[in-house]
Computed example of a mutant assay.
Amino acid sequence: VDIDNFDEHGADIVFIPSVEEIYPTHGKDAPPIDPGPVAKSLEGIHRPGHFAGVATVVTRLFSIISPDKATFGEKDAQQLRIIQHINKSLKLGVEIIPIPTVREFDGLAVSSRNAYLSPVEREAAPVLFRALTATKLMWHSGERSGDVLRFKLKSVLCGERLARTEYAAIVDVDTFQELDNVVGSARAVLAVNIGRARLIDNLLLG
């Protein structure tokens, strides 16, 4: 399916490496790349080791392909920030281009995980976007307290009985550390379980 999509959009080459190409020694002689301090919060807590794997694979891909540019979605904002970090710290020289989150008609972020939602759960899932937009509206009205903005995020999510919140946070756009007060820009981020689907989303405040 992915290859068909690439063809429709005019791609000339698709790189499909084997495991041996990415891990020539099955990882025995290649310690994982340190994803940096951004990986220690939020997704890094709930998915231990995930970002080290991402950093290692992306670094390996960049070293093989030597791309001029690479695109990564803003839906995975913490992952994007980590890739920007390793690209800069390892001097990989790739232009990292953030891609805005693609959304369904009701605001739900497009994701392969949406396929796990039953029809009833799919109706509930837009609560993530409602929580984010309500929080952004509060920020636009002048609210800068991290606690108040977090409470808004969580209160909207609590209004949906099928939603089980893992985290709902207001974080610094660079460090992804929680903010007591928002000075300048911030990012509202959340992870919510609905049925078998674990959904993540975020929205820039600023």
Rank of each mutant, 00 (worst) to 15 (best):
A77D: 01
L128H: 02
H140R: 12
Q79W: 04
K75I: 09
A109M: 05
D106M: 06
K152E: 14
L80W: 04
K88E: 15
H50Y: 14
E121D: 13
I86R: 03
G146L: 04
N114P: 13
N87I: 11
H46M: 06
Y116I: 02
A124F: 05
P48F: 10
N114G: 12
V127D: 04
I97V: 15
I96C: 08
I99V: 15
F151Q: 09
L61N: 06
E95C: 00
D76F: 05
W139F: 15
R161I: 06
R144C: 07
V57H: 03
L90D: 08
R122L: 08
V94L: 14
H46L: 10
M138N: 04
G53Y: 07
P119I: 14
F62A: 07
I83D: 01
I45D: 07
L153V: 02
V127K: 03
F62Q: 03
V120M: 09
E143W: 12
E143S: 15
H85V: 07
D76M: 09
G142D: 06
E74P: 08
F129D: 08
R113N: 13
F51W: 06
I86M: 10
H46E: 11
S118F: 12
L108N: 02
F62H: 11
H140F: 08
T71D: 02
V102T: 14
